[in-house]
Nucleic acid binder design. Structure first.
Lengths: 352, 352
DNA sequence: CTGTTAGCGCTTTCAG
DNA sequence: CTGAAAGCGCTAACAG
């Protein structure tokens, strides 16, 4: 492999390979039985003198329970898995941070898998987590249908979807109302007397949120009796590149839109970049409405109007819902929890 | 909990809870012995007829090996753990993506833990991974000393550090030469005849990269015989907020610097935001040099000059090094691999 | 190539 | 409250 290593420093180090101590070692040291020690480890009552004995032994032997063995017999691991569609995206990263924090409060471990936008990898990730015997799974899916989740339901493992639902099966899901959020965003543009409004969104065939947000755009436009010519509807993928290219094209139209709704974070980034490179000013020449406030609104001048999702609450709610199911206190029915969005106002929308 | 759920849709769903099938079920169906089946599962040779028999049974029973049981006996899990200091940071996210990709090629599973910038959590994450019996660990540490890694060496688990080394023990590490990278960045500013050059960096007490980069800055300034007054050295934490505040302060100095070296990604974001909000133009009034090209250079106008690290190669190299150690082919000595950095030129540095 | 046997480290009945 | 014994699902000798 051609790797840019500049130079390499080496120094000697010792290799030690101590076998970890087991509950059996504690038995030897304390003279107690396995059962008693196990009971102590699981918070049961043991005589104070024995408790002290055990604690001392644990200390001395650096004992740590083997979670594999424990999981093998109890069939639970106090670990939940999360499958994200792209760990490099700030949206996923932010959600993961909140999920991790919420799980930690509940003393649950977290196991993260990245699907890298690939349905095959996504399905593999699911199986990986099942094999790791996680107690439950949170999925931010790329697949639009429930097929890849079959192994999970077969294994009887609780699942909660986050950000996007899937078709074909009703599964607990925490998300926003994408259609409504888009509708509100576009309506704001309309209220500011914009008539030529374009949208940049991800491909409706493959991407749930893109599809819904496009619907919301159309709802608002139709309600106001405004036209939605095909050249104003730019759809392809969920990428910075596309946002950039789409905005370039929009700006060069003879009938240039006066406002553009950039319907996801990546596309917003790319589109802003295109506007910056052009000779046009925002909002004087073009008004902008973005989606998902991940830093973007702060480092771009002027401050962007944008749709914001309550990411912390979404992560926490997903964890809460999942843990309820894990603990058997979940409802018998599937629940879709639809979080509120709001529009954060900046200076990127001109009142015409 | 007060959560902004707008409304809730519910629908009935069935709860099925099939016990997963085991190797024993396959034994019953095929009439073969456990050993033969196990051998097949692990890629050994079995008679073609038996192979077919087994494959059919696996298909029918939806059999998946229980990795917990397997790990318990083999003492390896074909899984590596990664501990990052902040999963919400794009730097970490990008590195993770490359690591995941590299591991996947080698058929290794990945287990990600987020330390959220907290040394206590970091130590816990390490123990979590040990208990999960991962075969090796990659750490992007926050702690500056090796103490938290003791359990790892006690357990005899291979470790590779990424991005930052630690003190107190020599451990394999993949990183850049931070001091040199900073030196080169500041030298470029000096070559453009800047004399009043400031730096924004993270706290030298607590943060390795911040410390090294500050040294590089001082090296370059000293070499050129330029002064480094305390008010030009802004150090605190690795945060957007600090970048913002520090730049505000720098811009309001009576002797305003003509160039600023923003020595990490978060600080670069914040600082750019401050410049954008001011009446000053870049590069006409102030020249900027950033660190880590994670989108930032594209969406900010003018395009930023920045130090870039070869993140893909770093992730891959860390994986490669770790796998060598896991497979026992690692060297007896610790290796520090220092990757090359380069400066990506934009339009944010004015030639005076 | 296949089968038998013995555990990996832990929890969990069930007696005492 | 404690101990003995069984077994979670799988692999790893060893015979055959």
């Amino acid at each position: 492999m051609d790797c840019p290593a500049l130079w390499t420093v080496t120094s000697v180090c010792r290799k030690e390979n101590a076998m970890p101590s087991t509950i059996r070692d504690i038995k030897e040291v304390t003279g107690l039985s396995l059962a008693t020690i196990s009971k102590y480890l699981n918070g049961g009552n043991v005589l104070p003198e024995n408790r002290l004995l055990i604690e001392k032994a644990i200390e001395e032997l650096h004992y740590e329970p083997n979670e594999l063995a424990r999981g093998l017999v109890t069939n639970r691991t106090r670990t939940v898995g999360v499958v994200v569609y792209d760990i490099g995206s700030m949206f996923n990263g932010t959600l993961l941070r909140h999920i991790g924090q919420a799980l930690r409060k509940e003393k649950y471990g977290l196991l993260i898998c990245d699907s890298r936008g690939d349905e095959t990898v996504e399905a593999e990730n699911i199986r990986f987590l099942i094999n790791k015997k996680v107690d439950g799974i949170i999925v931010l899916p790329i697949s639009r249908t429930a097929g890849f989740l079959r192994p999970v339901s077969e294994a009887g493992i609780p699942v909660v979807l986050l950000d996007r639902p899937v078709e074909g099966e009703t599964i607990d899901c925490v998300r926003i109302d994408n259609r409504r959020a888009a509708y509100q965003a576009v309506s704001l543009l309309i209220r500011n007397n914009h008539r030529r409004i374009a949208i940049i969104c991800s491909d409706e065939e493959n991407e749930y949120t893109g599809f819904e947000r496009l619907k919301g755009y159309k709802d608002a436009m139709k309600e106001a009796g405004l036209p939605t010519p095909p050249e104003y509807i730019r759809k392809r993928d969920h990428s910075i590149e596309f946002g950039y290219e789409a905005m370039k094209e929009l700006l060069s139209l003879k009938e240039r839109p006066t406002a553009v709704f950039m319907s996801n974070y990546e596309v917003s980034l790319g589109a802003v970049m295109a506007v910056n490179e052009s000779d046009l000013g925002c909002p004087s020449d073009i008004s902008l409405m973005g989606f998902d406030d991940l830093i973007l609104s702060h480092i771009v001048k002027p401050r962007l109007h944008m749709v914001v999702q309550p990411m912390k609450e979404m992560g926490e709610k997903a964890v809460e819902t999942l843990l309820l199911k894990i603990r058997g206190k979940g409802s018998d029915y599937a629940t879709e929890i639809i979080m509120k969005t709001r529009i954060s106002e900046g200076d990127s929308v001109l009142k015409l």
